[in-house]
């Protein structure tokens, strides 16, 4: 080996030529279909080999690769038979137990990482799903993320525009009114209830709204003029009792008072709907302190109750 490192010369004493040829044939067939002639040429022209190999010998090599677990397929182009490796024994295999464990870890960390990393993780999961044989788990791997089935280039563009508060017009498949163009002065992207939204001012109604990214068909135009996003932020105080040790504040929340059985939390958002959903999800553990918002919560609860009794 030292001699090889010094003068790059290969001798029969240095290495197994059969082994080397096996590796060469294996990698060539892995790259794509090759004829016997392609393989013969590569071996005869190889700087370390310079060997003439018969078709019979090549056939034996290919049979050996098959015996070692390679799935070698034959294809014919212009009446010339070509061979390639469709699958091979060194491919990554993720067992069912391993896949379940990866999913468990993913669920544990998903809320703690940035949206950009979340996107990266989503495409990583999609890519590695192919190494799982169990169809159910494979499906879970591919569909676990709220970004599933959303064009990642749209997400990347939206992230970029939201960062600069750019005004964009999108073709939106609205649940209420079908496909239409909507102009949004973008603010941010966020995940709520396992769905990805873009938040911003809807130019048509001049109000702050959220739009499901999965409903955006394409970005139609971008207004390159500098826009200023001026939306008042709503601040609501609420009290939380019971199970407070398991309370996990959102990025827009902070605990401003804490006793042994009670928390006072401040939530800030430009989106009233988000605050309402958050408050409602705490159910009976939560009481809104801010008077104006308290009225709205009570009205909402009464409307819910009426829904159960009106018939």
């Amino acid at each position: 080996m030292k001699q090889f490192m010094k003068d790059n010369t290969i001798t029969y004493n240095l290495m197994s030529f059969t082994g080397f040829k096996s590796l060469l044939i294996f990698t060539m067939l892995l790259e794509g279909p090759k004829s016997y002639y392609d393989l013969q040429k590569a071996i005869s022209e190889h700087q370390y080999l310079h060997e003439t190999v018969s078709i019979d010998t090549l056939r034996i090599y290919i049979n050996t690769l098959k015996a070692m677990g390679c799935n070698v397929e034959k294809t014919t182009t212009n009446r010339v038979a070509k061979y390639y490796i469709k699958s091979q024994p060194f491919e990554l295999k993720i067992t069912d137990e391993q896949a379940k464990s990866v999913l468990k870890v993913y669920k544990a960390i998903a809320k703690s990482i940035t949206l950009t990393d979340f996107i990266a993780l989503q495409s990583f999961f999609e890519k590695f799903a192919r190494y799982i044989t169990n169809e159910d788990l494979k499906n879970k791997f591919e569909n676990i993320s709220p970004l599933n089935n959303i064009d990642s280039s749209i997400i990347k563009d939206l992230l970029k525009y939201a960062k600069n508060n750019t005004e964009i017009t999108v073709l939106y498949n609205s649940p209420n009114s079908g496909k239409k163009n909507i102009t949004i002065l973008t603010d941010r992207l966020g995940i709520s209830n396992n769905k990805l939204y873009v938040y911003g001012i809807n130019s048509e109604y001049n109000n702050y709204s959220s739009f499901l990214v999965s409903k955006i068909i394409k970005i139609v135009s971008v207004n390159l003029q500098k826009s200023k996003l001026t939306v008042p932020e709503l601040t609501v105080l609420y009290e939380l009792k019971n199970d407070i040790e398991n309370f996990e504040p959102l990025a827009c929340e902070r605990i401003i008072e804490k006793t042994h059985d009670k928390l006072v939390v401040e939530i800030k958002s430009k989106n009233k709907f988000d605050i309402m959903q958050r408050i409602m999800s705490h159910t009976s553990k939560c009481k809104v302190i801010s008077p104006e918002f308290q009225k709205e919560v009570i009205a909402c609860l009464k409307q819910m109750k009426e829904g159960y009794f009106e018939k």
Partner: peptide, 14 residues
């Protein structure tokens, strides 16, 4: 017919 040397290097890789 199989190639013994080829088999050995693949067993090693396995």
């Amino acid at each position: 017919k199989l190639n013994n040397g080829c088999m050995k290097i693949f067993k090693m890789l396995n």
